[in-house]
Amino acid sequence: MLKKRIIPVQLLIGNRLVKTVEFGDYRDVGNPVSSSKVYSDQDADELVFLNINREERDCDELVRLIQRVSEVCFMPLAVGGGISSFESAATLIRQGADKVVLNSAAYRNKELITQIGERFGRQAVMISIDARWSAESGDYKLFSDCGRTLEEVGLEEHIGNVVEAGAGEILITSIDQEGSMRGYDVRLIKRAVECTNIPVIAHGGAGNFEHMKEAFLTSGANAVACASLFNFGDNNPIRAKAFLTNYGLDFKTS
């Protein structure tokens, strides 16, 4: 049966790798091609690249990156950030990406999800959803444009919409927890898992392997994604798997 996955997320501004806290306050943490090679050697199951440059949302930079990464990493690669047309998605896939990640476009142009899914298969469409808890409304609010634009649609309704349009996978990020290393928002992830059959990737807040275990066992995620945990310190996917296999979770072996 399918394996659980550990997915390093790499945030990009220009051709540099950065790490944010709550979607702001970023630090430069290196060169994405070199780090991808290291993650591949450390037995990561997949890599996700997100362009978070708020000024420049041009896909050319992503195309150049995916060309270089696919020359050294022989594993599934997902890439997104600013993709708003079928042509951009198709170019990225032809240049070596296996999946494209849509976020803002998933609210505004569901037809794009359908188009990409029909041409490349639904597994090629990963929908990224950024959510923040609103104490005032007592519910999660969704945001597009790198956390800047409040969307009116609710979490379950949005997931239902994108799945119906042909999405293959959900990457759910807690803006509150992102970069905090305090743990995933297990309640948020559980809600995403419970309203769909497609795989859900937990993202935002992983600070140790215990947090990953919680995301898998308590919230039912198919995969965990993280950045800070691997960017800072000497943790890596090999060690994460060594820990998690003790709890009955099954990963690919290298």
Partner: peptide
């Protein structure tokens, strides 16, 4: 089961 069968197996 979900189709496509997509992932590590």
């Amino acid at each position: 089961l979900d189709v496509p069968h997509a992932g590590w197996n």
